[in-house]
């Protein structure tokens, strides 16, 4: 390539990425640093003053925040692994060309992710009413003997949120795995089969390693998503109270940020501090996930 040509290519390269870079700079890079600065400010409304570590100290003494943090972590630790494993198993099962009704099954399991988070939350809220269709069905099947107070009891409220998120996102993740499975050369499986490698070993020795990048990718995405959990809790369990009913059992970090901004006199500095905590958790968890993926 001549010098002029490469210069031209270089210029074109910048031109192509410029619009995205400008927008990202304005709406991500700049705000995130502003938010960092904000987290050292205290004061209500628009009256700020430098507060040093006051917000961070406040975090350690704020029981509502700690509740929100532990709730969010419980959602994360329980929901993400369950969903990823289920999505992976469904994808592998659906990838079998001998399976009857593949297209229908794939479409059906993928369908939940066309709904808006608000729309499906509303559906779940009505289905899981104390006298609702889920309790009726479970009682008819003799799984339970008395109706479960899904939105009244703190434990079941958490279970409900986890069920809801799993319903919405399993098919979404499955589609990523299905696409990645199509990229695996079938002759690898053929060779393994001829060598007498059993199905389970083919799964752990071929499928999992080949899918590792996409598993990592979806795990990171799901982690970020769960740490930002808002729409579902705001719609299913929060709308009756001032956030995360019953007894704050489903209050999440994002909901807490929202409450700090809109439910009380806005406290931007403290809300920004909680936001930055989410950034740090995401960073640490993503780093751990990358390390785990690298080692295996």
């Amino acid at each position: 390539m001549s010098n002029a040509e490469s210069r031209r290519g270089n210029l074109a390269g910048w031109a192509f990425i410029a619009p995205a870079m400008v927008l990202l700079g304005l709406f991500m890079v700049y705000p995130i640093f502003w938010s960092l600065w904000m987290s050292f400010q205290t004061g209500k409304g628009l009256n700020f003053k430098f507060g040093g570590l006051a917000n961070i100290i406040r975090l350690t003494k704020d029981p509502v925040f700690q509740h929100a943090l532990s709730n969010t972590m419980i959602f994360l630790v329980v929901q993400v692994p369950v969903m990823i494993v289920m999505a992976l198993l469904f994808a592998v099962a659906l990838n079998n060309p001998a399976l009857k009704g593949r297209a229908i099954l794939r479409t059906a399991i993928f369908l939940p992710c066309v709904t808006s988070l608000v729309a499906y939350s509303v559906l779940f809220k009505s289905m899981f009413a104390v006298d609702g269709v889920v309790n009726h069905t479970l009682m008819a099947l003799h799984v339970i003997s008395a109706p479960i107070g899904w939105m009244v009891e703190p434990f079941w409220a958490k279970v409900l949120i986890i069920l809801a998120i799993t319903w919405r996102w399993t098919g979404y993740n499955m589609v990523f795995y299905l696409a990645a499975l199509q990229n695996i050369d079938p002759s690898m499986y053929e060779a393994a089969r001829i060598d007498g490698v059993p199905a389970w070993a083919r799964f752990t020795r071929i499928t999992i390693p080949m899918l590792r990048p996409v598993i990592l990718f979806t795990t990171v995405l799901s982690t970020i998503g769960t740490l930002q959990l808002f729409d579902e809790v705001n719609t299913i369990t929060a709308s009756a109270g001032n956030g995360g009913m019953p007894a704050d059992s489903t209050l999440t970090l994002s909901l807490y940020i929202y409450n700090l901004l809109f439910k009380f006199v806005p406290n931007y500095g403290y809300a920004a501090t909680v936001s930055w905590l989410i950034v740090l958790i995401v960073a640490v968890l993503s780093w751990i996930q990358f390390q785990v993926a690298k080692e295996r």
């Binding site: 709406f27 991500m28 995130i32 930002q228 901004l261 920004a272 989410i278």
Partner: peptide
């Protein structure tokens, strides 16, 4: 960008709202 991808939207709400 990979770093930016891991910034949750929740972290941007406060400054974006003010901007």
């Amino acid at each position: 960008l990979l770093l930016l991808l891991s910034i949750p939207f929740a972290a941007l709400i406060v400054p974006l709202f003010m901007m």
